[in-house]
Design a protein around this nucleic acid. Structure first.
Lengths: 282, 282
DNA sequence: CAGGTCGTTCGGCATGACCGAACGCAGATT
DNA sequence: AATCTGCGTTCGGTCATGCCGAACGACCTG
């Protein structure tokens, strides 16, 4: 019996989440982690308790207690004047440890460094996570201008060079089946949104040995990627190099492709003998 | 190695933590975050539920529920065959976001890249966190061999070049007072453990304009650091370059010191006008 | 085939996580 | 000046819920 007579049948019902994730999990912990995500998605200078409470759908007091707990452990930090909650340094530490424990990250880093030194571009390594590229390592270009390329977030497969390099390992039928489930969302005017075009592009990728993203994800940004393989012969991930299209002479694309391809080949070579289960994600 | 089943029969009393941190925090969330720390400190291939329960001091069922909740949100991941819990990719993502939101990190990265390119050494930037250097950004040396230098963990001030560069900003009296509270713990035979020696070293640091750590933290490792300053004139942090001592010709120390010093000066220059509160840590 | 461990599931109880209300305080607005 | 709205924080009370212990099947070891 909901004794709160004045609540007027609030649809909220905080306690009884009723989500599909139900038993053998701890609701308050899940709420706290969602709070971290909300702060991570919020503005750079942090969120106030009231804003957090609104986003989280809880009372202010609950949001306050959760934020305090997270701040005590360093997951959040509070700003000096008005108490706004930002991401804390514990996350820097844990993310660094976590990235360094991925065998793929350790292994790719020297290769990426060399590729960046050779091409002057930002380079990244992605693992093949259920046919989606998930970037786990990055080496920034030396120049001053750089676009932010976050780690740990899955990319769309059909707009990134790493994703297309991975998709090129599948048969046309497998690609069609996959796309039937996910669709081909448009990101720029040049994004490939028709299946036959995608298949043609993947065929070209197989011929060349590297994939190209020509302003298909972000306008003005050019990207070249190549897959690497583990000891089973399966595609474990991909390496890509990204740059501003204007800075890239068209003639250099083939050279760049070969450079990325040989970098991926180096990773493949080192991957021989490492069992697959600690490479992949599950 | 921790397999000591007999946990000294501590009277557990799980619920009533009784810690000084008591009210207005959520105990189960604090437990969950401690669980993440335990996994982060554990072996690279993860921990089992039973091991977690022992380290956490809770029952297996509680540890199970907490671990499941964390795994559902990506903070942990489970391995294929035996369910062992490792750090998850959500931490890579959050750590990357967190590091990139530190204005100091963004600002230092190009400088560190240039310094690494010029010296061939691993370079790092630390913020001045209550007179302890806390490294928030790192650029690895291009070479294959590299020692792991974690981010987000506070360093001892008197053994690291960044720490000594920060301490050199204080008066002798302030240093003495600080050391009286923390002590001078020995890390190697060359660690400075007497106050008068430390003060002499700091005086030399002020003369030179850069600090030197000559195998005082780790044997065989050499380190040079210099402080940078924000618009208030206060010391906001330090930059350091680290390498294997054997690879470094003794004559080059002065050149290296000047390179690090000029890199720190670049950061200082860019820091003018940025308010202090978003630079410092609290 | 015992004996030990593992991960997972379940019942039940008391605790603690949550909410609503209230307070002091700023900064706008009247 | 006075009012008002929003903020962060504190507190009382209560019902959900997080926790534990026990139990079960599976796996490995002796």
């Amino acid at each position: 019996m909901v004794s709160t007579g004045a609540a007027a049948g609030a649809p909220r019902q905080a306690g009884t989440t009723g989500d599909h994730e139900s038993r053998y999990t701890v609701a308050s912990v899940a709420r706290a982690l969602r709070l971290v995500d909300i702060v991570a998605g919020g503005p750079i200078d942090g969120l106030t308790v009231s804003e957090i409470a609104r986003s989280l759908g809880t009372s202010k007091s609950t949001a306050y207690a959760l934020a305090r707990t997270l701040a005590d452990q360093g997951y959040l930090r509070t700003t000096d004047p008005g108490p706004r909650y930002q991401l804390g340094l514990a996350l820097v530490r844990l993310g660094d440890v976590s990235a360094n424990r991925l065998p793929l990250g350790q292994l790719c880093r020297p290769v990426l460094h060399a590729l960046t030194a050779r091409t002057g571009l930002t380079t990244r390594a992605a693992v093949n996570d259920a046919l989606q590229p998930m970037f786990v390592e990055r080496v920034d270009a030396p120049g001053a201008i750089r676009f932010y390329t976050p780690l740990g977030v899955p990319e769309l497969a059909h707009v990134s060079s790493a994703g297309k390099a991975i998709l090129a390992e599948l048969t046309d039928e497998q690609v069609a089946e996959l796309i039937a489930g996910t669709g081909l969302t448009r990101r720029t005017p040049k994004t490939i949104t028709r299946l036959d075009e995608l298949l043609a592009d993947l065929a070209a990728t197989r011929r060349r040995g590297y994939a190209v993203d020509d302003e298909e994800d972000v306008e003005g940004v050019f990207c070249v990627g190549a897959a690497f393989y583990d000891h089973t012969g399966g595609c474990a991930g991909a390496i890509s190099a990204t740059g501003i299209k204007r800075d890239l002479p068209p003639r250099a694309v083939e050279d760049l492709g070969q450079a990325v391809r040989s970098a991926a080949a180096q990773v493949t070579e080192q991957l021989r003998g490492i069992p697959r289960r600690i490479i992949g994600l599950r």
